[in-house]
């Protein structure tokens, strides 16, 4: 198999898998779920996913741990004040940049 063909097949596999995982439940889950347990599960899942993806990875977005820590604390405080998503993100980035520039 030529390298070009292999790259093509790998790319095809990659996007095929990524698409199917998103598409199958989206297309085939049509009815509203009645079970109270499942409804509760679906209510909690978004928060659980985002929390698991964020912590502790947010601390290690740069090679400087303290920059990550400062950026995280700034984001937490800004979020507690209910600032909009983009404002929280910008404040956090600026604080990380500031720490990286100073140290």
């Amino acid at each position: 198999m030529s390298d070009g063909l292999k790259v093509f097949l790998l790319m095809l596999t990659m996007c095929g898998v990524t698409y199917l995982i998103r598409m199958l439940p989206f297309v085939f889950f049509k009815r509203k779920v009645k079970s109270r347990f499942i409804r509760s599960l679906l209510y909690y899942i978004p928060y659980a996913v985002l929390s698991a993806m964020t912590f502790p990875a947010v601390l290690y977005t740069t090679e400087n741990f303290y920059a990550g820590l400062v950026g995280t604390v700034v984001a937490l405080i800004a979020a507690a004040f209910k600032l909009s998503l983009i404002v929280v993100a910008i404040l956090s980035c600026i604080s990380v940049l500031a720490v990286l520039l100073i140290f």
Partner: peptide, 8 residues
């Protein structure tokens, strides 16, 4: 990640 924090 900061956006995620702002959401949760």
């Amino acid at each position: 990640y900061a956006m995620f924090i702002a959401i949760i």
